[in-house]
Design a protein around this nucleic acid. Structure first.
Lengths: 147, 147
DNA sequence: TATTGTTATACTCTATAACTATA
DNA sequence: TATAGTTATAGAGTATAACAATA
């Protein structure tokens, strides 16, 4: 479907979002590096810290090829942050599970992600609520009071 | 400076921003791939399409090492999208300049970046204005009517 | 046969260090 | 000597294709 072709207000918002993306991304990479992780390793570890899952699921979540996950989990496993465990029900599957140390690293990583938390301090609670609801609608998340 | 440590509303907004970042980033890479460019090549070409600049300046804008730019510009040049030109005032400097074809590719790339433009159609003009002003304040851009 | 994970391969991006040619 | 760009090198991420083990 064709989208409205470039009214100035929309373009301005798009550019602002681009700035947010660049800043957020850079801070994420830097926070990962602080914990001696690459961005991809940090994303996998963060994902697994929420829920252990088979290798293939990780690739689906990260929208990349499954073969890439092998190497990333290899490096996390070599550092003792993640383990591969057999799935009792299907011996083809290997579950990637964070270790205690991996969980700790994931938590510290999350805590060090100040971005958007510090800038958000500029906004009042009411303004944050407005921002939240606008972002939700942009992203197609169902509205607070709608079905 | 310590930031407020995790009120639920702020965390929710941070997570929403994370979702925006992931979606925007994925769409940018995909749009670049549509034009047979990598993300890095697309970023360099987009930058040069606004203003030709010395190799070193590109590295500063992209926050990476200058040695990386050599290869990226090599590949853009091999495809006829960018040229290296001598700087008349300082023979150490090489200016990276997009060709006509490079400018066309950059324009089409920008036009194909529907993200945030399509989702923004969900919002009214008034809501987009509110979103714009909130993002500006978050990013520390001076407010519309403030010094 | 289909699926899961891995390996092998090739390309790109990245940082580091050493090199060249200018200034 | 200092700076701009390059080269050389090594590590990591990525996609593709082929493979072993299991279903």
């Amino acid at each position: 479907m064709a989208t409205s072709p470039a009214d100035p207000l929309t373009l301005e918002v798009v550019e602002l979002i681009g700035t947010v993306v660049a800043r957020y991304y850079a801070e994420y990479e830097q926070a990962a590096a602080t914990h001696a992780l690459t961005g991809a390793q940090a994303r996998v570890l963060g994902l697994l810290s929420l829920e252990p899952m088979p290798m293939r699921h990780i690739a689906q979540k990260l929208k990349c090829e499954p073969s890439n996950i092998t190497g990333i989990v290899d490096r996390l496993e070599a550092r003792g942050l993640v383990e591969r465990r057999p799935d009792p029900n299907d011996r083809r599957i290997k579950l990637a599970v964070p270790t205690e140390e991996g969980l700790g690293t994931a938590r510290r990583l999350r805590d060090s992600l100040d971005f958007a938390r510090e800038p958000l301090a500029e906004l009042s609670a009411q303004e944050r609520t407005v921002l939240r609801d606008l972002l939700k609608r942009m992203l197609g998340v169902e509205a607070p009071g709608a079905p």
